[in-house]
Write a protein that binds this DNA or RNA. Structure first.
Lengths: 150, 150
DNA sequence: TCTTATTCAGACTCATTTGTCTGATTCTAA
DNA sequence: TTAGAATCAGACAAATGAGTCTGAATAAGA
């Protein structure tokens, strides 16, 4: 069970954050990323394919190829990745699953959730990867420690 | 795709809210509830079975039996239903899916999500079914309109 | 007591999501 | 130009969760 996003989306977010923490333009194979994030190689490959389609990530085939961030970190926000993989549906549905939930026919938590939902959206859209860089680098480094311990 | 909770949980929340909007102690068959909420009869039955196990809902077998709210609405909160069906796992996991996410090794949105997560928990736990009653009754009535139109 | 309506419980099927494999493609370097 | 190394892309398989079915149990009412 995931919190909000699908596994695919979680991995997409992690992979892009990983790339944004590296030297700009450097390429990483699906294997590299798979080791860093401790997830199956092919799954990385598949998710990054999706992001390649939306222009966030680039890929180069052939020897010494790999995946890389294809946009400037100033131009990418977490919400872009969510949009590319899961879409924005979750920001438009009733948290209790009621049909026809709206301002005029609100569910018992409509207003409260509306506020939280908007803040979640804001959390994902107000900072760019560039602005998140320091935090990202710290987290990525801590992952290395995790895998070297185990 | 659901927002946060599983379909089972969404239906459980809706069914309990439905029961809490009715005359106390009145029994409803899975069919009744299924028609009201426009979901499959057997699915209602299955989800309410789960809630029967945790004592929130009661059931009576045999003719003129059915499901009913087995606790006073003052004693039930939405979080109780979430707990019984999905558990509290989502309140303890990293929203980006990072392994080992914690205060000492936070992900880039750790603090922001922590706040939103706590407020979500609060949304589900600060009001009882009794306190939500007016809002619930309104919503349940609007559902009737929906089905009668279609 | 007997019939009928109804739930319960668990086995089952179906759909979706997650994860894996393979062949074709592409690039590098000799 | 050719061989080798690596990715891409899409087909495939497995796992999970959603939803359905059936038979046994149970209670009400005739």
């Amino acid at each position: 069970m995931t919190v909000i996003f699908s596994k695919k989306c979680e991995l997409g977010l992690q992979a892009v954050l990983f790339l944004s923490a590296q030297k700009a333009g450097k390429k990483f194979s699906a294997s590299d990323i798979s080791k860093e994030l401790d997830v199956p190689r092919e799954f990385v490959s598949k998710v990054l394919q999706t992001l390649t389609g939306s222009g966030i990530v680039g890929s180069q085939k052939g020897k010494s190829g790999g995946f890389f961030l294809d946009k400037s970190p100033e131009d990418v926000r977490l919400i872009d990745i969510v949009m590319a993989i899961d879409g924005l549906e979750i920001f438009h549905k009733c948290v209790l699953g009621f049909k026809g939930c709206s301002v005029s026919e609100p569910c018992p938590v409509h207003n409260k959730w509306g506020k939280l939902r908007d803040e979640t959206y804001k959390m994902l859209s107000e900072e760019t990867l560039a602005e998140l860089r320091d935090k990202t680098v710290n987290k990525i480094n801590s992952l290395k420690d995790l895998t070297s311990i185990s």
